[in-house]
């Protein structure tokens, strides 16, 4: 029987993806230091729901498997609890790498479930517009788009929160919105150059 062998990517591509991930990560990622011990996956509260454990994903990044890594749901299932980060014997900035991979998957449109990136983009859009987050606008739009079946249960909850003064009907805005827009668009410009 002939076993189809996966061709390893060209060496140049391999290092390029690792470097790309590191460059887009806040802080020093230390990804190349991973010793594949699996402490991350063993500490992860949502590992069961992930396509790949963080350990596997890091091996894939180092092997240059860009498409597979960016299609994985692993970064989207990360709850940012930082258990893996404080336990990692090599000090890899695991949670920040997950944020990087989310951003890259958004750019490549390679995510399979649209719910998380939609939620993030609505949130970010509101922050860019108002300077503050607006819980009612965010959740209303998100539930109508993705969780219409959860609405019957969510509506009484929203009313309960409203009656207790915990939901604002109108968004809060900062005064210096122009200044904020100038800062954010300059930052976006710099991000695109790299």
């Amino acid at each position: 029987m002939v076993v189809a062998q996966v061709q390893p990517p060209e060496m140049a591509d391999t290092t390029r993806f690792l470097e790309e991930v590191s460059a887009r990560t806040a802080g020093v990622s230390r990804l190349e230091m991973c010793i594949q011990c699996g402490t991350c996956g063993g500490s992860c509260p949502s590992a069961d729901d992930m396509d790949h454990t963080p350990r596997m994903l890091f091996a894939m990044i180092r092997a240059g498997m860009k498409d597979e890594a960016l299609r994985s749901n692993t970064p989207w299932m990360c709850v940012s609890c930082y258990h893996c980060v404080v336990r990692c014997p090599q000090g890899v900035h695991i949670a920040d790498v997950m944020y990087t991979l989310k951003g890259m998957a958004e750019d490549a449109k390679s995510y399979r479930d649209k719910t998380p990136p939609h939620f993030a983009s609505v949130f970010v859009g509101q922050v860019e517009t108002f300077g503050r987050s607006w819980e009612l606008g965010l959740t209303a739009r998100h539930y109508l788009r993705h969780f219409i079946l959860r609405l019957p249960r969510m509506t009484p909850m929203a009313i309960g929160l409203f009656m207790r003064g915990r939901i604002g009907i109108m968004p809060n805005r900062i005064h210096q919105r122009k200044q904020l827009h100038a800062i954010l668009s300059k930052a976006e410009e710099l991000e695109k150059v790299s």
Partner: peptide, 8 residues
Amino acid sequence: EYVGVSLS
């Protein structure tokens, strides 16, 4: 949310 969209 924001850190998962764009770094700078």
